[in-house]
Design a protein around this nucleic acid. Structure first.
Length: 801
DNA sequence: CAGTGAGCGAGCTTCCGCTTGACTT
């Protein structure tokens, strides 16, 4: 019907653009890429100069045929995907897949979604930039070759179904190396000397807090200083310096900075931030949320300016243009900002409102004046002492500027620096009285573990990964069980305090908790083993600069200075032989194996390594006549640190603790912790019970307790065996369970009064296709917990035998 | 949902970057 077909990447964008263009234009969306390398095998024809073998993925077939027929009907097809490497490739794939050779098709691009920008783009169409497309093909093919050649090496050498890649493997490396730094970190103690001085002026008493200009290494030094203070007790203000300080607002949000601030200020996970932002974007409240640009459109700058001037006054406004400094940024979009700067609040869920508020404030603040402070530094001289002085600083806010709206948080661990505050009136050469002085033993801080958001920041800094992949990458390395979010309990540590007060020096000890961590990324044994293997075998790929180096070469291709196949050829010729060599290299021990010693009972070798189901210990070797025996490591144990004694203990389980009702009670540790098995039922051991020492009586009590709880859970039971219908009390209220399916009880129905017939009715009326479909997708998808994958594997094995 | 695990078979797993979807016990 319409003469013109415009194709953009995102449906939300299509909707807005259609409004601007009027009825001669139909706007459709490609939903990102429409073609990709073959899903199976390498997808690159090595024998024919690395020809990429493209296919339309199954879930895109319908869309592509719709686009194709719409293109057929149109006079002109406008390819309006983003103006970056990936966007250019999307246009080219559309051109090829929709068969636009004999059609009038034009490539256009716009950075802002405004009527002017779009009309301007339509007046200035161009050809598809094949060099840029080739740069994308090089990127795509390189990633495929790396991923699909290195992963199989891991399957063979470490464990099936593992993965390696240009981005994920480096992300894991960062986390492993940080953990090593933490392990190797040696804390150093030093004494921090603080003092409180007093003075009087016009009948008012003032206090002044100050700190010694140096920390003292030993207790003896600290003590001798306090002794000196006690003896001389004479202090005078030596210097007062006041200077203005300016603070400037941070740039508007990119994907990465939004993820960081939402984590710090709102406690959102990286993926949570993205899905909330997606909803805000789809409802037209914010601009696109996957961007590496800090640029604001002139419209946004102007509306911010008038908003600031009307709400806060002219002196709060300062127009700023930010420039992107992150490596490899492609800047196809604007920064993340509110669509309408005049809306300081929006409707929606609590999360949406909070995230929007953050985005609004950050954007507004970025267009506001600097905050102006006055910082005063006072130096206090100690009589008969040349090396040491006390120093006190105070800050006065002269003009709040952008601070009125927004201050960026930092990731730094809470430092023990005092908050800088207002100083009392002070004069040069003035004498002060010492009220007290305290020497506190302080320790250097170990490096922090990465959070999801700080890992994203590091990856961005290294130019690794893209806004659209930060969240998925973090999921991948956790799904593969290379890293996990851990809660680490701290240990308590003593520290020493010396205090001079009223002419006496006291010495006391206090304790503090140190090393605790919550929700931080920590490598697993598999992560450590895989990382060490990869960094040794493929050092160039694991190099932190690998991406940055190849990005430069992609740029050369984009500028037409190099053939993309030439780059890939050079890479492959040096890379592939290494893969072959590593794959075929024979080692007499498995990757990551540690030999701990010999079993005192049998004299056989005890070792630990990664097995098919994760880290395990084993007695004996495959060369022994008898088969070796195995035991999984427990959750809190690690391949790298487990001792012979701890390993031997693992083989004491499962253990029979006794009998109850004529059936054995067996204790063991499973995936969900220690449990008792009795009459083929499982009962978890609550905290405080040790599977190695639990007694028969304790076990019986726990079984009885569990039975009591279960009976409270059950409301009614009908039938028996396969026809058993249970009405249970669940987390979300009562529900019916029948043949391993759960059914909702209609609102307003009393669960207790249901009859068997009514239950069957509910079961019959529940749309079974949806529950089945749900189950289908669940197994199709990546196993959320690794168990589904393992289950099918073992099941297959058994049937084949 | 808690067991498993060292060699005949057969075939599976895997990358990075663009996009959104359909779900609730």
């Amino acid at each position: 019907m319409q003469k013109n077909l415009v194709i953009v990447e995102s449906p939300a964008k299509a909707k807005t653009i259609e409004k601007f263009l009027g009825k001669d234009f139909k706007v459709m969306s490609s939903y990102g890429h429409i073609r990709d390398l073959k899903k199976k095998d390498l997808g690159v024809d090595l024998a024919h100069n690395y020809k990429p073998l493209y296919e339309i993925p199954a879930d895109k077939k319908k869309l592509v045929s719709e686009l194709k027929s719409a293109a057929k009907d149109a006079d002109i097809v406008w390819l309006a995907s983003d103006e970056d490497r990936e966007g250019e490739a999307i246009s080219w794939h559309l051109y090829e897949a929709l068969d636009l050779k004999n059609k009038d098709s034009k490539r256009i691009a716009f950075h802002e979604i405004t009527k002017n920008a779009i009309l301007n783009a339509i007046e200035n169409p161009r050809e598809i930039n094949k060099d840029l497309v080739d740069a994308q093909q090089a990127r795509r093919v390189l990633d495929r070759i790396v991923g699909f050649e290195v992963s199989p090496v891991l399957w063979k050498k470490v464990k099936p179904a593992l993965s390696a890649g240009r981005v994920q493997s480096v992300a894991v490396r960062l986390i492993v190396e940080r953990e090593r730094e933490i392990q190797d970190f040696k804390t150093e103690a030093a004494y921090r000397i603080q003092a409180i001085f007093t003075k009087e002026e016009n009948g008012t008493k003032y206090e002044l807090k100050a700190e010694l200009n140096k920390r003292l290494k030993t207790k003896a030094e600290a003590l001798s200083l306090l002794e000196h203070l006690k003896e001389t007790n004479s202090y005078q203000i030596d210097d007062i310096v006041t200077k203005p300080v300016k603070k400037s607002p941070a740039a508007p949000f990119t994907t990465s900075t939004l993820q960081q601030e939402a984590a710090r200020k709102l406690g959102f996970s990286v993926s949570q931030t993205m899905s909330v932002a997606q909803r805000l974007y789809e409802s037209g409240k914010i601009t696109y949320m996957r961007t590496d640009s800090v640029n604001l459109s002139s419209l946004a700058i102007n509306t911010s300016k008038s908003e600031i001037e009307s709400v806060y006054g002219k002196e709060y406004s300062k127009v700023r243009q930010f420039s992107t400094k992150s490596k490899g940024a492609q800047e196809a979009h604007e920064a993340i900002r509110p669509t309408y700067m005049t809306d300081s609040k929006v409707s929606g869920s609590a999360q949406e409102q909070k995230l929007y508020d953050l985005i609004w404030k950050r954007t507004i603040a970025s267009q506001m004046s600097d905050a102006e402070l006055e910082r005063t530094t006072v130096t206090i001289d100690i009589a008969n002492e040349d090396d040491f002085k006390f120093v006190s600083t105070g800050e006065v806010l002269k003009f709040d500027g952008f601070l009125r709206v927004y201050l960026e948080d930092t990731d730094d661990e809470p430092a023990d620096a005092d908050e800088e505050s207002l100083l009392p009136p002070l004069h040069l050469k003035e004498k002060l009285e010492l009220k007290e002085s305290t020497a506190t033993e302080r320790f250097t801080q170990r490096p922090p573990r990465y959070t999801e958001a700080s890992l994203v920041r590091k990856l961005e800094e290294l130019g690794i990964g893209r806004p659209s992949t930060y969240a998925p990458t973090i999921s991948t390395i956790q799904n593969r069980e290379y890293v996990e979010k851990s809660n680490i309990e701290g240990v308590s540590r003593e520290y020493n305090i010396l205090q001079l007060k009223k002419g006496k020096i006291s010495d006391s000890t206090k304790t503090e908790v140190t090393g605790a961590d919550k929700n931080k990324l920590k490598p697993t044994d598999i992560g450590i083993v895989v990382n060490d293997f990869l960094t040794e075998s493929f050092p160039s790929i694991l190099d932190y600069n690998f991406t940055a180096t190849v990005e430069k070469q992609f740029d050369n291709i984009a500028e037409g200075q190099e053939e993309w196949t030439h780059l890939i050829d050079t890479f492959y010729k040096s890379f592939h032989p290494v893969v072959d060599e590593v794959m075929n290299s024979h080692t007499d021990h498995k990757i990551g194996e540690r030999i701990l010693g010999t079993d005192p009972k049998t004299g056989k070798q005890i070792s630990v390594k990664i097995g098919r189901f994760g880290p395990m210990a084993q007695i004996g070797t495959q060369d022994d006549e008898e088969k070796p025996t195995f035991a999984s490591l427990q959750k809190n144990q690690s391949l790298t640190t487990i001792t012979l004694k701890e390993a031997l203990k693992l083989f004491e389980l499962p253990r029979v603790v006794g009998e109850y009702e004529g059936k054995e009670m067996q204790v063991a540790v499973g995936r969900f912790g220690p449990y008792i098995r009795h009459n083929s039922k499982f009962i978890s051991l609550p905290k405080g019970y040790d599977p190695y020492s639990i007694t028969e009586e304790e076990a019986i009590d726990l079984i009885e307790e569990k039975r009591k709880k279960d009976s409270e859970k059950t409301i009614q039971i009908f039938g028996e065996g396969d026809n058993e219908i249970q009405i249970l009390n669940g987390r979300y209220g009562p529900y019916i369970t029948f043949q391993k399916n759960n059914y909702k009880i209609p609102k307003g129905t009393e669960a207790k009064s249901l009859t068997e017939e009514q239950c069957l009715e509910i079961i019959k009326n529940t749309d079974n296709t949806t529950t089945k479909a749900k189950r289908g997708t669940k197994t199709d998808k990546k196993p959320a917990k690794a168990t589904t994958g393992k289950k099918t594997q073992t099941a297959k094995k058994q049937t084949s035998k």
